[in-house]
């Protein structure tokens, strides 16, 4: 019942065998070994599985793998030395690290899309992710340090 599809992930064309019912998150983790996107709720509530699709952050747990066909998919493994990763490091914006990939992907898309985003926009975007360890103050400092650098 599995079928082969092609997905463009982090700039590379990848063939994966999936069930039609598989979510993108499952395909990434179990077929491609890209485990940076995490299951936290598998219900779209927590954002730990966030990836970037065509420039927009998406929760890969509520998207089917087949919906990713023909789209540019970026996962945390596709980011290398970006300003937001550096900012997360410098501002101690994580502890256990489980929500971090999702937060970074969301922040990265935000700064690409709205490099001079105001507080309210940042809040709107980042409220879709949950971090249980930090106080969010650290994440706020991280995203703002990058936004101000950009503007």
């Amino acid at each position: 019942m599995n079928r082969q599809i092609h997905l463009n992930i982090n700039g590379e064309e990848k063939s994966v065998y999936i069930r039609n019912a598989d979510t993108l998150l499952t395909a990434l983790r179990e077929q491609l070994g890209l485990t940076g996107a995490k299951p936290g709720c598998e219900n779209g509530d927590c954002g730990a599985c966030t990836v970037i699709i065509e420039g927009m952050p998406q929760k890969s747990c509520i998207m089917l793998a087949v919906e990713g066909i023909g789209k540019q998919i970026t996962t945390i493994e596709g980011l290398n030395n970006t300003p937001i990763q550096q900012a997360f490091l410098e501002k101690w914006a994580f502890q256990c690290g489980y929500c971090t990939s999702g937060f970074i992907m969301n922040c990265h898309a935000l700064m690409e899309k709205h490099p001079d985003a105001e507080d309210v926009v940042v809040e709107n975007w980042l409220q879709s992710n949950i971090c249980r360890c930090t106080s969010y103050q650290e994440i706020k400092e991280a995203i703002h340090s990058v936004l101000s650098k950009n503007s």
């Binding site: 890209l34 995490k38 493994e77 290398n80 990763q85 101690w92 994580f94």
Partner: peptide, 24 residues
């Protein structure tokens, strides 16, 4: 001193592995 956590790079690159990330 505020020495950054030693596993920090793995965590910001998605390479940090947790139990459910292991399969065979």
């Amino acid at each position: 001193k505020s020495i950054p956590r030693i596993e920090a790079e793995d965590k910001v690159t998605g390479r940090a592995k947790y139990t459910a990330d292991f399969s065979s």
